[in-house]
């Protein structure tokens, strides 16, 4: 059972972690609690569904198309709504409320277009499994773990070993200073929104094949990712990575010992406890 616990922590943590890393990345340059990140992930799932099941495109085409759509969506949200608002002096609270409004609109559009029923991109019969000795998991879950590590590696490399990454971190450290030096903040923010969109698109597609999708899927996923990122300190990518895993571990242990209906309660109690005791989360170091 212990092995299963660890394995499941990895799988669930990976799902949360992609959102957590995306959240952290976006927050680092645009510091507000952006509710539409959940919408972008949900779009990943629904766009894939639209392209593959409804338009009949081959799988890889549909998946890549969906991720591209997410990147564009994320970009347009930032360019069309948040950046102009920020430039007009909107506080982070105002931006958060605005994003809540956008998320609400998004959810109702999905409901209107796709209907309320549960959809799953994958088929239960053709599930390819990966055998691990003590357990076998469906391919999509293994891919989620892989994607999690790959995204982490890629973003880490980007942030620490490239010039673009330097610019991103500069905006994070001090937006006003970066502006003074002449780096175009807005451009960086837009670039980050595209990156975030890609990561979220990947997350959405994977979830679409695993536990499926419903129009309300984005909100809960966002919260989990956000909690993961905040537990990890919301100060760096590594924090988001481990914070998400920690959250998944705590949830799973909770379910194992208590009952599953208390899962949400456990997640939020941990969240609030962490915030109360260590406002910086697990990883205190600033930077990146």
């Amino acid at each position: 059972m212990l092995l299963h616990l660890l394995l499941n922590t990895l799988i669930v943590g990976a799902g949360y972690g992609l959102m957590a890393m995306a959240f952290r990345l976006m927050y680092s340059v645009s510091p507000f609690f952006n509710m539409t990140l959940g919408a972008v992930a949900a779009l990943g799932a629904y766009a894939s569904y639209g392209l593959i099941s409804l338009c009949g495109l081959p799988m890889w085409f549909g998946v890549i198309g969906a991720i591209a759509i997410c990147a564009l969506f994320s970009y347009f949200l930032e360019a069309g709504i948040y950046t102009p608002m920020r430039n007009h002096g909107a506080s982070s609270m105002v931006l958060m409320v605005a994003s809540l409004g956008v998320y609400t609109i998004f959810e109702s559009v999905i409901l209107l277009v796709f209907g309320p029923q549960y959809q799953n991109l994958g088929s239960i019969h053709s599930a390819v499994t990966v055998h691990l000795g003590f357990a076998s998991i469906p391919l999509v879950q293994a891919l989620t773990i892989v994607a999690f590590f790959v995204c982490f590696g890629f973003l880490n490399y980007l942030l620490h070993h490239t010039f673009i990454g330097l610019k991103i971190r500069a905006v994070n450290d001090s937006a006003s200073l970066a502006n003074t030096i002449g780096m175009k903040n807005n451009q960086i923010i837009l670039l980050v929104s595209v990156l975030t969109g890609i990561v979220l698109g990947v997350d959405g597609v994977l979830i679409g094949y695993d536990t499926g999708m419903t129009p309300t899927m984005g909100f809960n996923l966002l919260f989990k990712g956000m909690i993961g990122a905040i537990i990890g300190g919301l100060a760096n990518l590594r924090g988001a990575f481990f914070g998400a895993l920690f959250l998944a571990l705590a949830e799973n242990i909770g379910v194992l010992i208590f009952a599953s209906e208390w899962r949400d309660l456990i997640a939020f109690v941990i969240f609030i406890t962490f915030l109360s005791l260590r406002p910086q989360g697990i990883f205190q170091k600033k930077g990146n």
Binding site: N8, I11, S260
Partner: peptide
């Protein structure tokens, strides 16, 4: 006798417990 909340997505641990 295990109860669930409507928006739960990860049921693996509960199902493993049931399996036992």
């Amino acid at each position: 006798v295990t109860s669930f909340n409507p928006d739960e997505k990860d049921l693996k641990m509960e199902i493993l417990k049931m399996k036992e």
